[in-house]
Simulated scan of single mutants.
Amino acid sequence: MIAVGIIVSALLFAAVSLVLVRIVRGPTTLDRIVAVDVLLAVVVCAIAAEAAFTRDATSLPILVVLSVLGFIGSVSVARFSPRSRR
């Protein structure tokens, strides 16, 4: 079980580092916003992995709130982003 925790931690660390690169180097503001949304999803996955590893369900309300926050953020960005006319 410890090997699985190490592998999951390494993959989450790699995902966070790649997302941070996209946030810093993103060519447009929309790329940066999508990267922040992905970062939120990675944080949710990290909290869920920690909850599964420790078998503790006290962080589930935090997961629900972060998931709703990510959904509302994505919908609002999609709603108010400028559309290109082609």
Score class of each variant (00 low, 15 high):
51 A>N: 04
58 T>M: 09
62 I>W: 01
45 C>E: 07
70 G>N: 15
74 S>N: 07
62 I>M: 11
44 V>F: 05
22 R>T: 14
36 V>C: 13
67 S>V: 05
13 F>T: 15
78 A>S: 15
14 A>D: 04
85 R>D: 00
5 G>D: 11
81 S>E: 09
83 R>C: 00
21 V>Q: 11
71 F>A: 12
82 P>L: 07
46 A>I: 07
8 V>W: 00
44 V>S: 13
79 R>T: 07
33 I>L: 14
54 T>A: 14
55 R>N: 11
37 D>N: 14
57 A>S: 13
70 G>L: 06
21 V>D: 10
68 V>I: 13
57 A>H: 05
13 F>C: 12
55 R>W: 05
77 V>S: 08
69 L>Y: 06
67 S>T: 15
60 L>S: 09
61 P>F: 00
32 R>M: 11
56 D>V: 05
19 V>C: 12
22 R>F: 10
81 S>V: 06
43 V>W: 01
61 P>V: 00
23 I>C: 06
80 F>N: 08
72 I>Y: 08
67 S>E: 03
37 D>R: 04
36 V>I: 14
4 V>P: 00
57 A>Q: 08
25 R>E: 09
83 R>V: 03
30 L>Q: 14
61 P>D: 14
63 L>Q: 08
38 V>R: 02
84 S>A: 13
17 S>A: 15
78 A>H: 05
29 T>V: 11
